[in-house]
Design a protein around this nucleic acid. Sequence first.
DNA 1: AAAAATCATTGATCTATGTCAATGGATTTA
DNA 2: TAAATCCATTGACATAGATCAATGATTTTT
Lengths: 197, 197
Amino acid sequence: MEITQAYQLFFEYLEKTIPLNQTSQEIIRNTFAFRKLKKRQYFLQEGNIAYHTAWIAKGCLRTFTINQNGMEQTMQFSVEGWWATDMFSFLSGEPAAFNIEALEDTSFLILDKIGRDLIFEKIPGFERLMRILIENHLVAHQKRLNAALSLNAEERYLIFLKKYPDIVQRVPQHLVASYLGITPETLSRIRKNLISG
Amino acid sequence: MEITQAYQLFFEYLEKTIPLNQTSQEIIRNTFAFRKLKKRQYFLQEGNIAYHTAWIAKGCLRTFTINQNGMEQTMQFSVEGWWATDMFSFLSGEPAAFNIEALEDTSFLILDKIGRDLIFEKIPGFERLMRILIENHLVAHQKRLNAALSLNAEERYLIFLKKYPDIVQRVPQHLVASYLGITPETLSRIRKNLISG
DNA sequence: AAAAATCATTGATCTATGTCAATGGATTTA
DNA sequence: TAAATCCATTGACATAGATCAATGATTTTT
């Protein structure tokens, strides 16, 4: 993916919500930097500080933690048009608990905290956009927490299938299992069960 | 709790982050209304629209859903200085999935969407305060989701104890169980186990 | 204060999901 | 293209936590 195209996609994404004049576009070009990762490379590693937030132009990033027992817990798959960072670390400047790796060759734009504050100040509506984004993110998280605490593995898998039919096609099955908080074996059995009856 | 005292507490709460002059205080008095609920009364019921967000001055509200099997799932206990609403319903105007009930006699301030937009416009820094609040809320939710998906019941209870030592004292045990996503019996056994060995 | 309702505890079982192990298929690397 | 890894599937078994049921202990209502 070309850098010009990445900004173009980002402008289109933003213009769904806020109008951008030439000046605003210029500010964005100067604050968001373009980056690429090859499959299996890391955007962030646990223990480091998340200096950036990423907006995905092309590809897929996976955010995950490693729990006490050394098992990976996938928090999120971020595809085109989504954001990715360790919000806690980005906001607090403390070391990150999350790892973020590329599942495919991925092109994205990155923003640091200084850039973010600058944009909040210079581009009217941007802070509102971020607030609304996070509000919706929170709502999605509430639903997922609810599902995690009160639904069984099969029910959670069906919700995932319905909500992210594209992602299911795109990422390995054991990572879907890790997103759902179950073992690959259990997911395999759930799928078998759904197919046969 | 007196109405004057409630606003006073709210001003103190806000002034930790944003300075408030007389005009701002006046705007807040005109947009936030004072309300009381007795124990067991509802602030919001599933299916209704959440027209308001509440800021608790005194008392405790519990937010919960009822899942497919008719079981209650507690999402949050909101005590003094916390906020409560069904964010999804409040933002979208769709019917709420959450119930919010008073666990004690509770005094709080409520804000509707029009009031919120007005305050965002009139009081500099308020939207930023809300954004930061929600960001932190999201971070907390991420941690909780993580715990729900990768820790066992005892580990989750210990985290809850550590994070909310006051709330454990204040709410019935079976509601803590419902917050943790386990049965009251299991929580009772966990406690027994922690005490004896 | 008595009766009724709600809640916490404990025991006996049941079940969803995890764990360990083996096999074959699919990708990646050499 | 072969070798090496990684991944999905399946089976046998183990376990955390649920369910059902009974009993006291609190709390609420009368």
